[in-house]
């Protein structure tokens, strides 16, 4: 296995050549915020929170899809990056209807955590207050589009791990939303196996278990990792 050495925020890191900057940073305990990244599923580099600076490169690069290289000097916390990250989170809060106070994921939400991490005490962008529906047609789960940040973790986990591909994205721009099946109510999608992986994958309270109330959502992220390991390494015990 060939190894690359690089520095991240001045810290020397050695890691396998096929790893990403994000993996390298995490192995060294250097935090880089992410929202669309989920261990075990493919990367989409859509949330732009993990953008980092590399010495000698003008463009910011997403740490989740950029491979490490020998001698690379990575900066993860420059003032510019901090500024942009806060704006990303502010944009997310202003485009949806994220009312933490009444959300099942309050206290257990990646978006809420991201706001704390980037130091967002308010958003400078006017809230859009879009009119979005809630789908509670599924017997066990619900989908509240108001809380969705379109990270597509549910889409990928359902497609790549469960193999059901219940979810996808419809429309364009600000009108985008997650569709179930052929734009049917979730409960009418026969492909859904009710496995609940999308609930575990969802970073916010958008996909939830029915019966959960404010702050009650729990996730079993380890289950997703277990399944990936099981497939790849044939380790079927948890």
């Amino acid at each position: 296995m060939s190894v690359r050495t690089l520095t991240i925020d001045g810290v020397d890191v050695a890691i396998a050549a096929d790893q990403t900057i994000l993996q390298a940073a995490r192995s060294a305990g250097i935090p880089i915020p992410t929202l669309c990244h989920l261990d075990g599923v493919s990367e989409v580099a859509a949330c732009r929170l993990c953008l980092v600076e590399i010495t000698g490169m003008q463009k910011l690069v997403p740490a989740c899809v950029t491979r490490v290289a020998e001698g690379m000097e990575v900066q993860t916390q420059t003032p510019k990056l901090q500024d942009y990250r806060r704006m990303v989170v502010e944009l997310l809060f202003s485009e949806g209807n994220h009312v933490c106070a009444i959300c099942v994921a309050n206290g257990n939400c990646d978006l809420q955590d991201a706001a704390i991490e980037v130091g967002m005490d308010h958003t400078r962008f006017p809230y859009q207050f879009p009119d979005r529906p809630v789908d509670i047609s599924h017997p066990q789960f619900g989908m509240d589009h108001n809380r969705c940040i379109l990270c597509t973790r549910c889409v990928r986990v359902c497609d790549e791990i469960e193999g059901a591909h219940v979810w996808d994205v419809a429309q364009r721009g600000a009108n985008c939303y997650i569709v179930s099946g052929m734009n049917q109510p979730w409960g009418a999608v026969s492909a859904c196996t009710s496995c609940g992986k999308c609930v575990d994958a969802c970073p916010t309270g958008a996909i939830f278990r029915k019966g959960e109330t404010t702050g009650e959502k729990e996730r079993d992220r380890a289950k997703l990792n277990f399944l990936v390991t099981a497939r790849e390494k044939k380790e079927w015990t948890r």
Binding site: F93, N97, V99, A101, D121, H122, T123, Y127, D131
Partner: peptide, 20 residues
Amino acid sequence: ISFGDCAVTANVPGMRNMLE
């Protein structure tokens, strides 16, 4: 000082804004 989520985000009272 914006004191609490309703002052900072419009929060629950703001949920009527979806009705335009």
